[in-house]
């Protein structure tokens, strides 16, 4: 029997799912409610300058880019397997499209925070 090479992808999928479940509701509350309500009252939360300065700190920036990355890997894994569950003969091409776009997204995110340094 051939050993499966899925475990690393599954671990990234698991990490991304956990992060999305933990951070998703907080992000919705923050960006959907707190920021606009505060802005209406003339208070700036997560303003451009402050956020830029925060992200320019290497540790914060890289951690954030990696967090975004694993959420992308989660999405890639979910989409790839859902296509297979729906009966699509998802071969190498689809595999590369799913995981490749997650990899590119992760690299772009890391590149973006490095550009702020």
């Amino acid at each position: 029997m051939k050993r499966s090479h899925e475990p690393p992808l599954w671990l990234l999928f698991g990490a991304g799912g956990l992060l999305a479940a933990l951070l998703g509701p907080a992000l919705i509350l923050l960006t959907g409610v707190v920021v606009p309500v505060a802005a209406e009252r003339g208070v700036e939360v997560l303003g451009y300058e402050a956020t830029r300065e925060l992200l320019a700190r290497p540790l914060v920036g890289v951690l954030l880019a990696l967090s975004l990355g694993v959420v992308l890997w989660h999405a890639a894994h979910r989409i790839y397997h859902t296509l297979r569950d729906l009966g699509m003969r998802a071969g190498q091409g689809v595999w590369w499209a799913c995981y490749g776009s997650a990899a590119i997204g992760t690299l772009v995110a890391i590149g973006a925070v490095i550009a702020l340094w």
């Binding site: 029997m1 051939k2 050993r3 499966s4 899925e6 599954w10 397997h81 297979r84 569950d85």
Partner: peptide
């Protein structure tokens, strides 16, 4: 473990 770790083992399942 040989069966569990294989492509045909638990990794063939997509948790439908």
């Amino acid at each position: 473990e040989r069966v569990i770790d294989a492509e045909q083992g638990v990794w063939g399942c997509t948790l439908v």
